[in-house]
């Protein structure tokens, strides 16, 4: 059976060899889904276990290393909030990133179509060659996870480190940028850098449309909430509590 027929006709539970996350097989299906049908086979999502997160910011750093984002720009960051008073005080942590919303308010406000939702896997992405840097999407996102760096400035000013020299070629100054769910890695069958790096395994990603995926099971069994679900954005991000 050819790949196209498999995508179209084989019930998806049978064709999913591993329930936890994407494999090469799944990303092939996603890529080919674009040509065969408008049905969304994959909806990438992430579950973040707030009980496991220790606020170490490893995901923040892994994202910076992987994507070469400039100073002041964080596609992934861990929020902190202090609770209580001494001696019963604690700090709460919450990793924050683009939720790849099913109803993303950042997309309709974009005047050029640079912000768009990939039909075959529901990722919200930015075509930097189309973006004019108007910041409408930055303002429209209720999660404050978009950035428009105006200049290419390194961590040491205009003098780039060898790493910055290479990694800064991946983005254009004056255009919007945000978490891509490491789409370049997903398309190779790899997981997002933040997930791979999290030392407490607080981050779990996978296909929300697959009831057998680990993320779907976690969402079924654990108490959880979606950030600002009341805004009608239907985020693909679930905080497990």
């Amino acid at each position: 059976m050819g790949l196209a027929s498999r995508v179209l006709f084989v019930p998806y539970r049978k064709s999913q060899p591993c329930s936890r996350g994407p494999t090469r097989h799944w990303s092939e299906m996603a890529t080919n889904g674009r040509h065969t049908t408008t049905t969304t086979y994959v909806r990438w999502g992430m579950a973040i276990d707030l009980k496991r997160c220790t606020g170490c910011q490893s995901c923040t750093m892994a994202c910076k290393v992987e994507n070469g984002t400039p100073a002041g720009v964080f596609w992934m960051r861990v929020l902190e909030r202090e609770e209580g008073t001494f001696p019963l005080a604690q700090t709460l942590y919450m990793p924050l990133r683009c939720n790849h919303c099913a109803e993303p308010p950042c997309v309709p406000v974009c005047p050029t179509g640079a912000s768009y939702k990939r039909t075959h896997d529901s990722l919200v992405l930015i075509d930097q060659d189309k973006c004019i840097g108007c910041s409408a999407c930055v303002i429209a996102c209720p999660y404050q996870v978009r950035f428009v760096p105006r200049h290419k400035t390194g961590y040491h000013g205009d003098q780039f480190t060898p790493y910055e020299d290479v990694s800064y070629k991946r983005w254009q100054a004056g255009t919007a940028q945000k978490c891509t769910f490491c789409v370049h890695r997903l398309d190779q069958g790899l997981g997002p850098a933040c997930v791979e790096t999290c030392p407490t395994k607080a981050l779990v990603y996978g296909n929300l449309n697959d009831p057998q995926s680990e993320i779907s099971k976690l969402i079924r069994t654990r108490t959880h909430f979606q950030p600002r679900a009341e805004a009608g954005t239907d985020p693909s991000l679930f905080y497990l509590t």
Binding site: A114, K130, I132, G133, T175
Partner: peptide
Amino acid sequence: ELGHPLRAWRAIFK
């Protein structure tokens, strides 16, 4: 004010 003013023509499509 735009980051890429030369692409502003694209803004008529949406």
